[in-house]
Amino acid sequence: MILERVRQNGSATIQELADEIHASPSTIRRDLDQLTEEGYLERTHGGVLLVPPLRSTFEREPSLDAQLQHNQKIAIGQVAAQRLNPRDSVIFDSSSTVLEAARAAVLRDIPLTAVTNNLESALVCSQCPSWRVIMPGGTIRPTTRSMVGEPGEAFLKTIHVDVCLIGAYAVTGRLLTDATIEVASLKRAMIQSARRTLLLVDSSKFQAPAFSTFCEIQDIDEVITDDGIAPEHLAALRAFSVKVTVVPVNANGSASMS
């Protein structure tokens, strides 16, 4: 909650955070100290500033990352889930926005074959009795609940799915990047296994590149993002002749139908 509150306004005082979150100033200070130590925030006199993660190998802790742009991620996921047809085979990667797409697709209750390297996504997908859920295998990355490496990459090279739903740490011009070589390599294999790839990224992901490139925007069939995207980033996407869907976001996190 603290990160999302600071993200919305760029900065906040300790008292503002305490009043909004209904916590004591001392509790807020301890939380801020931890977030500052981890590189998310910069302390100021009596408050904090949000620090953009300019380090190319910076990785947010997954539970914190899921809080940021949460309503936008839900809305993007709802639209992406509507792109799936009964009996499709679908790769769900380990990004938090794709997880929201999996949740929305489960509510549709159409038969699918789901392939995912993310433990949380696999549990979500397993809630639908009509789905066949496949995990490629690999080594679980500490704190991320996702698997990378072998035998997962080799397995992905043997399958041919209808749709791949994938996220990115950063979109910079034509480049899609991730903070680690291992995750980028797996994403590359996922894209190569799919007939169609949909990129699900909230508007905050249009930023400086992360460490490792996994594809270029021309490898993507459709980009789904939210209406917070800057006009220059939207124009750049459309200049590459990729289909772009901009999702208006309601306050409750659903995609606006207006």
Rank of each mutant, 00 (worst) to 15 (best):
P209W: 01
I21L: 15
N85C: 12
S95P: 01
A184W: 09
V183I: 15
A236W: 10
I181Y: 15
T213R: 14
E38A: 07
D162M: 07
Q69I: 03
R132K: 13
D65C: 04
V247S: 03
M147I: 10
F206Y: 07
T245V: 05
D226P: 01
V148S: 11
A105G: 07
H70K: 14
I140R: 10
G149I: 08
P52K: 06
L64S: 06
L112Y: 10
G39V: 00
T158W: 08
R141T: 15
F211S: 15
R87K: 09
D31S: 11
G152L: 03
V124Y: 01
S56W: 07
S11N: 12
I224D: 08
R174L: 09
H22W: 12
N85E: 15
K243T: 14
T44N: 00
L186G: 05
K243N: 12
L234W: 11
C215V: 09
W131T: 02
E120Y: 07
C128K: 08
T36W: 03
V171P: 00
L99K: 04
E38S: 02
R60L: 14
G39Q: 06
V51P: 00
D178M: 11
D227Y: 03
G39W: 03
E37A: 13
P53L: 04
L49F: 01
L237M: 04
S56P: 08
V171L: 05
P136H: 01
A122G: 03
Q192E: 15
V124P: 02
A184P: 10
D219E: 12
I166E: 12
R188T: 15
S256A: 13
L237S: 01
G152W: 04
R188G: 12
R43Y: 00
I76D: 07
N117A: 02
T245G: 01
R55G: 13
M135F: 05
L176G: 07
W131Q: 06
P136V: 02
G173F: 08
I91R: 05
G138E: 09
D109K: 11
F58P: 02
I217N: 09
Q192F: 08
T44W: 02
A23S: 14
V244N: 06
G253V: 00
S193D: 01
V133E: 10
R43N: 04
A251T: 09
S185M: 11
V201W: 03
S256T: 06
K187A: 13
L35I: 00
S126W: 01
A102S: 06
E59P: 01
V106P: 04
L99E: 13
A210Q: 14
M1Q: 11
Y169D: 14
C215T: 13
L49W: 08
P53S: 09
G137A: 04
P62D: 06
L50D: 04
V79F: 00
Q67L: 15
P86N: 03
L84C: 04
P52S: 06
F155G: 02
S256H: 01
